[in-house]
Simulated scan of single mutants.
Amino acid sequence: MTVKKQASKVLVVDDDENIRSLLEILLKHQGYEVFLADNGADAMEIAESEVPDLVVADIMMPSTDGYELCLQLRSTPKLSQVPILLLTAKTEMQDKYSGFRVGADDYVTKPFDLTELELRIKALLRRKKMAADFKDPILAIGDLAINRNDFSVRAGDNLVALTPSEFSLLEYLMSHAGQVVSSKELLIEALDYPSGQGSSEIIRTHIKNIRSKLEKGDPPTYIQTVSRQGYIVRMPDKQ
């Protein structure tokens, strides 16, 4: 008897009916189970009921916009680790980084290329699924420890909540402790960006957010910057 693979659930939130219909057709064709909402308030109701594997949300919406939706999802325990992909018509990089600061994992700019959107969705879902594949889920460097099954992070005595993308970056840096890792490598290997896409500013913003959650002051204790080269998690000194 063949067990049918359960389809990933994707919640699409956009006040533009044409965009919702387009994404519904695209995602169902890819085999996803799709839920639709035209505003953030309805999206939260659906998310709490269905617990989607991914949320794709527009930023500019009436009432509850995409930024506020991110904050609400991240503050809801059972939804806090759901990957969030923002759709934005804004072209200024600062506007896009505002999404990262409130908990988004990635963004695609409107008008978007359907192939790029498919790749970003697949990458976010793949990283979420990979967590269940680790035989030894605990990774610890000094007093910094992560659990790759439940996405928990402990820095000293403190439990820290990271977004899925932040967790992926920290996990990659810890897996390569003692090595300097470039922004380009982090984009490709940790965040699954195709070669040539993304920018070092994306990594810089995510690292800044991770540090704000892990670190109590300057200079950084866990993730250090190596000028013009990248980032490093240093191995603790042997006693």
Rank of each mutant, 00 (worst) to 15 (best):
T2F: 15
S8A: 14
V10T: 05
V13K: 05
D15Q: 05
I19W: 00
R20H: 03
R20A: 05
S21Q: 13
Q30T: 07
Q30M: 15
V34K: 00
N39S: 14
G40D: 07
D42S: 10
D42E: 13
D42Q: 08
D42P: 01
A43D: 03
A43N: 02
E50L: 00
V51Q: 07
L54T: 00
V55Y: 01
A57Y: 08
A57Q: 10
D58P: 06
D58F: 06
D58N: 07
S63T: 15
S63D: 15
E68Y: 08
L71N: 14
K78D: 08
L79W: 01
S80I: 01
P83T: 06
P83F: 01
I84M: 02
A89L: 14
S98D: 11
R101E: 13
V102C: 12
G103K: 01
A104G: 06
D105F: 00
Y107T: 09
V108C: 04
T109L: 09
F112M: 11
F112N: 11
D113S: 03
E116Y: 06
K122Q: 15
K122C: 06
A123D: 09
L125Y: 04
R126G: 07
K128A: 15
A131K: 12
K135R: 09
D143K: 13
I146H: 02
N147P: 04
F151D: 01
S152I: 02
A155C: 09
L159M: 14
A161C: 09
E166Q: 12
F167C: 03
L169D: 11
L170D: 03
S182I: 10
S183M: 12
L186Y: 08
L186R: 07
I188W: 14
E189T: 09
A190P: 04
P194T: 05
P194Q: 06
E201W: 14
I203V: 14
R204P: 03
H206C: 04
N209M: 10
S212R: 01
K213S: 03
K213C: 07
K213T: 06
K216F: 14
D218C: 08
D218W: 10
Y222F: 05
Y222D: 01
I223K: 00
I223Q: 00
Q224T: 13
Q224M: 11
V226R: 05
R228V: 08
Y231N: 04
M235R: 13
Q239E: 14
